[in-house]
Design a protein around this nucleic acid. Structure first.
Lengths: 148, 148
DNA sequence: CCTTGACTTCGAGTGCGCTCGAACAGCTAG
DNA sequence: CTAGCTGTTCGAGCGCACTCGAAGTCAAGG
């Protein structure tokens, strides 16, 4: 499979695919006669998995570590599992945090009066902003970014 | 309230607080005799809310838009609510996506044999990687990043 | 008077994860 | 032969969200 096809099938750009190879996320790619990359179809599944890791916020350096372990053969299985378990735990935490924020968001939206008919001056309580339940702030632990 | 105290109470760094002010996330700050920032306590709630938005992946430029609307008075309430509703919708999507990934992750981890006693060679099925259920890939829609 | 320490402004630097473009190579069709 | 397409390498550049450090100001304490 050529790079354009792989890009199409995985949703990664050709540039990103070469970049991933450079940094060691993808294994040694075979080349055809013209020294063009000729991917094994199994790479699609691996990239699919990488996308899951990425979606769940795993930093690239950690994916690299995982990829390195993977290419290290069966003796790295325990380490790989440990990584995934740790990651799963973080994802759980992230989801919980997101859900907590959703509640706040809902409250805030509800505070902006009921529907499009209202919106009179006496309803400006939301200009106070902040968390109507408790202004919980705490430390910066986990953040989330990017949409595109 | 001085900047150090605000930083302590919100978990943002002093540098970040000045940065937020520069880019318009924080309203006009009053100064004391020494031209030092002297924050109104209400800023704490606002920063708390900003942190929620940040945690839920709202980009800074969008927060700026929200902040600008906020300083535009009651006539912007409808627009603000619309922004929050759109954002809430994206957060819902993100959570769903995360949860879907979590299922995959669980399956994958389960594939790495039961417990620490096993781990023999015949269990290397996970070297195939990818999604054991279906190698769903799709386009890049929403990503998540950063951890502290 | 001098030090200490918290503050100020400013612009430059950082880390991440790509993204882009230039310059070039090789295959295929017309 | 030439055009057009896809691919190649390389290094530079970008957008984001800060982060840092230098150089200076000010008030209080010893």
């Amino acid at each position: 499979m050529k790079i354009a096809e792989l890009a199409r099938r995985t949703g990664f750009s050709k540039h990103a695919l070469r970049y991933y190879e450079r940094i060691g996320l993808l294994p040694r790619v075979t080349r055809d006669g013209a020294r063009h990359r000729d991917y094994d179809p199994s790479i699609v599944a691996w990239l699919g998995f990488l996308r899951r890791l990425k979606t769940t916020g795993m930093p690239v350096r950690e994916m690299r570590r995982y990829a390195a372990l993977r290419s290290g053969g069966p003796e790295t299985i325990a380490a790989r599992r440990a990584m995934l378990e740790a990651h799963r735990c973080r994802v759980h935490t992230d989801i919980a945090e997101l859900q907590a924020c959703l509640v706040i968001l809902d409250t805030k939206i509800a505070g902006y009066a009921g529907d499009s008919q209202g919106m009179t001056d006496h309803d400006v309580s939301n200009d106070r902003d902040g968390d109507p339940i408790r202004a919980g702030l705490a430390k910066p632990r986990g953040d989330r970014r990017a949409r595109g």
